[in-house]
Design a protein around this nucleic acid. Structure first.
Lengths: 144, 144
DNA sequence: GACTTACTGCGACTCAGTCTCATGTGTGGT
DNA sequence: ACCACACATGAGACTGAGTCGCAGTAAGTC
């Protein structure tokens, strides 16, 4: 389980404990290729026979997101979802609005755009959030 | 009141009514240079002596956002806020994380970035959301 | 194996946002 | 100027996501 290893390592590196609940959540994340809500995690955990409390799910997701193993995405509907991701470098997510699958894309040439915005607005840009929504190749293939 | 006029026009154009509640909300939007939450509108309306119901605020904001006079922004904190904006063309918002002020910037060269993402991911990109956070010129000046 | 304390589960709580429904009020037609 | 009708509103109950506090549990350390 590679992702699980990554998580173990990240937790250990941060001096946090590797607990049953966190392990269970990590396992669920691996099985999901797309975005998921806290509620999804809660349901999946219950279905898998793990008794994980609602609060624990939220706390764990927050922890994981601080470690960069998971990222919060605000869906167009206003729902708060999460996507698993690699902690290393800056990237964005493309979410399929048909099947919910989500793909990471490297940060591709956004820097000059940000520089232009900074210049035009007089702001110092500290952070940004780019969320992309569309239809993935598979779903488009099915349309025909 | 130019913004109010814009709103009147937009409502009329869409075959919607110009009601007291909507007028009151439009007036409040004009006084705000930054982002605001539904709760803010509710409070301001109450403070200004208008009895606007909670449900009405949400309904009106939804209507206004459909008309493009207002746009939803998801703050880094996860809060749902709104910013007033011009309905014409595609643009983004830069939000000052110090004072909350928000500025519109024209869509500046994001198209090639999107094209690259589409190519890299195999997705057809239908929509995107770019939110920028930073510190505005005024707040930076005050830092010194 | 015992100790410390981070972490968990539970359940109560808060608060944003929605729904329903009876009432009110713009608007277009006359 | 008036009327009628449908759109819009307000009140308040409701829902559901997310948080909090606390007592109990178990991971890591020695």
């Amino acid at each position: 389980m590679p992702a699980n290893d990554a998580m173990t390592e990240a937790l250990r590196g941060a001096g946090l404990r590797i607990t049953a609940a966190r392990r269970a959540i990590a396992a669920l994340l691996e099985d999901r290729s797309g975005h998921f809500t806290a509620e999804d995690v809660l349901n999946d955990a219950a279905a898998a026979g793990h008794d994980v409390g609602r609060a624990t799910v939220f706390r764990s997701l927050e922890t994981l997101s601080r470690l960069g193993l998971v990222e919060r995405v605000d869906l167009p509907s206003g729902e708060h979802a999460y996507v698993a991701c690699r902690p290393d470098e800056h990237h964005h997510h493309v979410v399929c609005s048909r099947c919910g699958r989500s793909v990471e894309v490297a940060d591709i040439g956004l820097a000059p755009v940000l520089a232009r915005v900074a210049e035009a607005s007089g702001f110092r840009i500290d952070s940004h959030r780019l969320e992309l929504f569309g239809v993935c190749a598979d779903c488009r293939a099915q349309d025909r």
